[in-house]
Amino acid sequence: MTGNVAPRIGGNPAPARRPAGVVTRVELTWIEKRIEHWIRFGHITDEQILNHKHRIVSFAPGNIFAFARWAANDYGTIISRIDIVRAVAPGTPYQTLPFVRPGGDILLKVSGWPKVERVLQAVDAIEALDIDPVDVAPNYWRHVHNRLTVVQEPRSYTRTQHHAWRLRQRAEP
């Protein structure tokens, strides 16, 4: 490997490696129709495959990602949840979250399939605008969380809102 070019694995570029301790790690499990943990969006910086059912993915500080969890037993679904989290820098305060080490800045946290489905629809709507959900204003995810918590419909994210967020980012020191 030379420079910043990542090796290709299965036709896709491998995530760039970061030094240990500077990333947020998320433990993913996939046991079909029993335990399904996955990343809906986010820029993975590293991936460690433990076996065919378990892997650990890492995110650089400041990166926003969606972590979905679903589990069932013989009687049906026992958990359905999605968290939108901002990876934290070392020494930064954070909230703990199962399967996320050390934790993160939780922007959205919902459980129950109707609310999870509504968040997934919001993500799809953002992607339909050709906007990467990673780049969405963190306050929008908080808005979605708050509205769903009180059983209200969240407002749609707009290109104008996104443009204003990007300008604000450039203006802040």
Rank of each mutant, 00 (worst) to 15 (best):
W30C: 08
S58H: 08
N139G: 10
A122S: 14
N146D: 02
G76A: 03
T77S: 07
E127I: 06
Q121H: 10
K33D: 14
V22W: 08
N51Y: 03
P61G: 04
F99Q: 15
I78G: 07
K115F: 05
R155L: 12
A87N: 02
H162A: 11
V116M: 01
G62Y: 10
A72L: 06
R147C: 05
S156Y: 13
V100R: 14
F99A: 15
V57S: 03
R101G: 12
E127N: 09
E127W: 03
R155Y: 12
V150A: 07
V136F: 07
N73L: 01
A87H: 09
I78R: 13
W141H: 08
I131R: 02
R40P: 09
R55C: 02
P154E: 09
W70V: 08
N73M: 05
E27G: 05
V116G: 08
F65A: 05
T96K: 02
P90K: 03
P98W: 09
V144K: 08
R147L: 01
S156L: 15
F67H: 09
H54F: 06
Q169D: 03
R166W: 11
P61S: 10
N63C: 01
G62H: 04
L107M: 09
Q169F: 07
A122H: 10
E27I: 04
I82A: 11
W113S: 12
D135Y: 10
F65R: 05
I79N: 06
P90T: 00
V116E: 07
E153L: 02
R147D: 04
G76H: 05
V123K: 14
